[in-house]
């Protein structure tokens, strides 16, 4: 499966990028109801004090693509996601969403579910409707979103009685209920146990295919990235070091040799820089 690996130079000339994008859109027809928004980032920089976290990010994400962003801790991947979600101020550069996107069309899901403990599950999902919360259809929409994540009968419960995976599914329903066009995930499965993770990954993939939003997944787990994403961006030292296409059929077979080989080569790239090749070998054996 060597052709699945296409390492590209990080900063390409703009005109060429567009050609590559056109080819990519042909290869990846938009999913579902075609609700996704394209995302273009140019020369993005961000510093916290003296520390420059992002040193010039240039990338175009076509509508409806599932992009995973991986990197070591502290590489700036979460900062990139927070900038995309509008949670931090941009120092330099631009992030644009094709058409004039409204803030409510971009949603974030965090590692913590961030549910209101004093609101019942259904009311927590209704929070996701933003200003449309007071409309007559609010409750029906929330119930529908809850059914979509498989928790239809839990609407009247307090969040405190739910398991970690269930809470995270409620958080997903809250993000989905407003019909987002871009959904950004910040390590959404990081705090879950291995089996719950796998079923959550399947759920994420399913709702993404059904709804066709543009998905941006920040994760430290390379196997999760290759299992879910169309494309993996590897961030090193505040720049995109590698931009890798994952041309594999869905649904993907977890633990298959192709995925493992791709995962191993990404891990090797990640670890090469710091010179601990031995652990890269160890990882790829897994």
């Amino acid at each position: 499966m060597q052709e699945a690996l296409q390492f590209r130079a990080p900063a390409e000339p703009l005109d060429r990028t567009d050609l590559v994008e056109q080819a990519r859109v042909l290869r990846h027809p938009p999913h579902g109801s075609r609700r996704g928004l394209p995302l273009t980032i140019r020369g993005l920089r961000k510093s916290f004090g003296d520390h420059e976290v992002l040193r010039g990010i240039d990338v175009h994400i076509p509508a409806g693509q599932f992009v995973a962003i991986v990197g070591r801790s502290g590489c700036g991947k979460s900062t990139l996601l927070r900038l995309i979600a509008g949670l931090e101020k941009i120092d330099a550069g631009t992030i644009s969403f094709g058409e004039a996107a409204r803030r409510e069309e971009i949603r974030v899901m965090f590692q913590e579910p961030r549910l209101l403990p004093w609101a019942r599950v259904l009311a927590n999902v209704e929070v996701g409707l933003g200003r449309e919360r007071k409309t007559a259809a609010a409750q029906a929409r929330a119930e529908q979103a809850l059914a979509e994540v498989g928790l239809a009968e839990k609407g009247g419960q307090w969040p405190a009685v739910l398991s970690g995976g269930q809470k995270q599914r409620v958080a997903l329903a809250r993000a989905l209920v407003g019909d987002p066009r871009v959904l950004a995930f910040d390590e959404p499965l990081g705090a879950l146990d291995a089996l719950t993770r796998i079923s959550m990954q399947r759920l994420l993939e399913r709702v993404w295919r059904d709804q066709g939003f543009t998905a941006i997944l920040v994760t430290h787990d390379v196997s999760e990235a290759v299992a879910l994403a169309d494309r993996v961006l590897v961030i090193e030292d505040g720049r995109i070091a590698h931009d890798i296409d994952v041309n594999m059929h869905r649904p993907r077979q977890r633990g298959s040799a192709d995925l493992a080989r791709l995962e191993g080569s990404i891990l090797r790239e990640l670890l090469k820089k710091s010179g601990d090749e031995q652990s890269a070998e160890d990882q790829s054996v897994l």
Binding site: A85, L87, R103, E104, R107, V108, F110, E112, R114, L116, V127, G128, G130, R131, R174
Partner: peptide, 10 residues
Amino acid sequence: QLIEMGRIYG
């Protein structure tokens, strides 16, 4: 984090 969540959801 809850306050940030509230702001995100308008």
